[in-house]
Design a protein around this nucleic acid. Sequence first.
RNA 1: GCGUCUGUAGCUCAGCUUGGAUAGAGCAACAGCCUUCUACUCUUAGGAGAAGAGAGCUGUGGGUCGAGGGUUCAAAUCCCUUCAGACGCGCCA
Length: 586
Amino acid sequence: MPDFFADEIKKAIRDAIFHYLKEHGPEDPLVHELTGHAWHDSISLEIPPDTKLGDYAFPCFSLSKKLKKSPLQIAQELFNAIKKHGIITEVKVTGPYLNFFIDKSKLAELTLEEIHKQKDRYGMGSSKKERVMAEYFQANTHKAMHIGHIRNISLGESLARILAFSGFDVLRANYQGDIGPHVAKCLWGYLNLNGEGRLAKTEHKGVELGRIYTEANSQITGNEGLEAEIREMTKKLYDGDKSIIELWMKTREMCIKEFDSFYKEFNVQFDQLFFESEVEEKGRQMVKELEKMGISKEDQGAMIVDLNEYGLGIYLVLRSDGVALYSTKDLALAKLKFEKFKVDRSLYVVGREQELYFQQLFKTLELMGFDQAKKCFHLSYGLVMLPEGKMSSREGNVILYQDLRDRLYELARQEVMKRHEDWPEKKVQEVALKLTISALKFSMVLREPGKDIVFEWERSLDFEGETAAYVQYSYARICSIFKKHGKKAPSGAELSLLTDEHETALVKLLADFPKVIADSSSQYKPHLMARYAIDLAKRFNEFYQSCRILQEEDKLRDARLYLAEAAQHVLKTTMALLNVDALEEM
RNA sequence: GCGUCUGUAGCUCAGCUUGGAUAGAGCAACAGCCUUCUACUCUUAGGAGAAGAGAGCUGUGGGUCGAGGGUUCAAAUCCCUUCAGACGCGCCA
């Protein structure tokens, strides 16, 4: 709810305490506290667990200690001293709590008029004058995309959108490995597992290459002869050996093309694509610099940064044979981000297993004197598993994206077809695809990032429950009201009519939206936004269920239309921030 | 061995940063309701009636918040111990 209400209540409480003190004890440190600058913070309000108890609550426990009286007594005495005024319509004492009821029509007016004024900009933060780069996805070419990548891109994109909405200047970055042992394995597979024939048969050549990689990898792993062969091929790749470079270029192109269509399907556009090869050389130079600065040193032939005094162990920055490591390249990339792209804040959406690694990276950057190092953040996320028990780990039984997507899509298509027999096939496919991709994104963002999740894919498309479809359906319902009504909500509606508990509950939730933006942005937690979207959809449906709109008499109808339109705006914004499609019919 | 994270209803998960009133959702189960969703009939229109489904809503049942201790007026939340699991701890990314 808007701070305005809390402020008014706090003032009333302060006056009551003053009044109380005047009568009961002339000198008290409390007077000092309440006249100081921080008096505002010394009175803390809470939201009661049930709206029937009140809209705001003031617990009297802390005063109890200072005044040496029971909180129940204090609540009663404050109640006698408090003056109802302005937006406070009622005050009640419930045990040790002083509960306040606020003027609901005032709340509706303030909130809804703000939303109608701002429309899709409602909740948007003012410019932070700060540039943040979010690096995510980081899928390698020549490898299959699996369900973990989906969690990554869904989180990353949603985070980027939330940050941009809350006022940051956001750059989206993707950092991909297009060369290395994994490429060699894929190419070996291409040559030995009938790659040419298989690619000829499919549109999705990148996907097929990924499958070839997976098969090749399982054959090669543990086979010493083949592993030696791969090492040899990897070296040839790095050396630009003509015998293999042409195939590499050709297949690399296929993979990148496949990624492009995937980005399109997922509605993601990167501002900056980085490749490992770009930063390898710079990384090696940076390690030399580190040594000069006395930050790194040689150990067993390799270069390390000893971070033991920070409890971060040893950070290895260069291999003993002088070959660049992931860390070598990341150091250079970070510098590039800070200096060339003028980034003030840098986010990395990467799996949880690299937590220590990123702490080491950030600490090293800090030691090098980069101020931005303090504003680096590793958004780490857990594994995605299916109810069947398979995991998305690198070695384990991988769930390929394409397989899952196709399964989900088929399910969605059947459902849409069943409901709209009159729709042309093309429209069915279009809507089904949107539902599929939205369901995937939403399920991946709904959970707290750090935790492993079990992706209940069969449920993700349900139109009930905590799903994208439920949110989308609620939105479509609102759209359908206005379609039926034939025009938008009129301005100047009598919002004081909105006093039903369901109306108020919806208004309150709408009023909370700016805070949700602020929280999910400052804490890097997109799941707060997803949960809010569910809550809002639910709250709207409750309102819709118990309050008629179009059939009411004009004034009430207009007020409710006004409310519905506000819900529509906010719901649309939440979907945009989650990168979920807002469909007008489904 | 050390470090980080996780453990909440049968299942999937919020809540924990910043301690407060009977610990919340969703799914599944059961019992209902149903308007603006779907479809049928009637109506000049607005709309009305009966019905079904469901992608709506309500209610019911279901919990030692892993266990034990501590701090506090108050602990799912903070601290300690312990059990279980995941991940990490130098030449992978």
